[in-house]
Design a protein around this nucleic acid. Structure first.
Ligand SMILES: [Mn+2]
Ligand SMILES: [Mn+2]
Ligand SMILES: [Zn+2]
Ligand SMILES: [Zn+2]
Lengths: 172, 172
DNA sequence: CTGGATTACGAAAACAATTTTCATTTTCGA
DNA sequence: TCGAAAATGAAAATTGTTTTCGTAATCCAG
């Protein structure tokens, strides 16, 4: 079951330019070198939406430059994470996913196990409660991850699909 | 109420017996066979505390029977998970960990990135709040995971160790 | 008790995601 | 422009886990 993003829509150019500049800055500060490949990769990455796997990214990158390989994509993603422009996610399907949108504002995820939809949410009370619990345990939080796995109850309901499956299993 | 990893106490025999019986039941119901190896593995597993990796378990198992191999340990752990006697966890270090204690009561985790300590907590308000947020998003939760990554602030403080490291990085 | 179909075992091979190696190319400051 | 340092890409290596396959153990019908 692929974790699909049901989100089309365009990314605006100024956003991409901003990220490219921030990455260039990071590269500079670290004394690394600007390369054609890295530029292609980050510019491609920030034009994509959602939670992108390495393979997805490489496929897109290859459209611009088919000679770019896995290693460089992996390496560049590590740099993006190190520069705080991108966050790595793992939703339990065995592959790393990367997201660079929503400006590194923290958020958590709900993952529909039926259709793969991933939605994001943020709730200050929830965050505060975590801090409170950490405090009580004499613990200092650097970061956290909260993932809700389940099914959407929307139109065409994934939750219903799940029930049907359960019923079939009974009958069998 | 954090049960921490460095807890040494003994596991009481009745607990182990109970789990062995429950597993035997499961094996029976599924029409599988009772084997010496599986018995060794589960009996070893339930005598261990904490969040056990496959390698840790295999090492212990080999003390009882050195001929048991990885494949059987993996296979038996899958059965334990399927039977709901054990839960699989992944705390981001790339390996699966298994826990069978605390009677499958749900709980979440705080992981100290300095000393590796894992403590467990449960808070009904936090759980309720998640349900409320799911409801608002028209989402049905099957399960969730919440992990707080950070540092303990106890004696000898891991948090302090972290600060020292940061200071050194500055100085360099 | 068996016989023998069924299931399990274990060593090794296969896998999948990711990292590393290494020969070659590119970058960039002196 | 030169050359040290860094980056690239193809391929090999690594890591955690799963599968294969020949052999062995289980267990129930007879
Ligand atoms: Mn997200
Ligand atoms: Mn736990
Ligand atoms: Zn859905
Ligand atoms: Zn600690």
């Amino acid at each position: 079951m692929p974790l699909n993003e049901h989100d089309n829509g365009q990314v605006d150019e100024s956003f991409v330019k901003e990220k490219e500049a921030a990455f260039a800055d990071f590269i500079q500060r670290k004394g690394l070198k600007t390369t054609r490949q890295r530029n292609t990769i980050i510019s491609t990455f920030f034009r994509l939406r959602g939670h992108i796997s390495v393979e997805e990214l490489l496929n897109e990158v290859k459209k611009a430059n088919p000679r770019i390989g896995y290693a460089t994509v992996y390496r560049t993603l590590h740099l993006l994470v190190e520069s705080n422009l991108v966050e790595e996610r793992r939703f339990g399907d065995g592959l790393a996913r990367y997201e660079g949108h929503s400006d590194v504002e923290h958020h958590d995820h709900m993952i529909c196990l039926e259709c793969g939809m991933i939605s994001e949410f943020f709730n200050p009370r929830l965050e505060a409660l975590q801090e409170k619990l950490a405090e009580e345990n004499n613990f200092e939080i650097y970061r956290h991850r909260l993932e809700l796995y389940g099914a959407c109850k929307d139109t065409e309901s994934c939750a219903q699909r799940k029930n049907k499956k359960a019923a079939e299993a009974q009958g069998a």
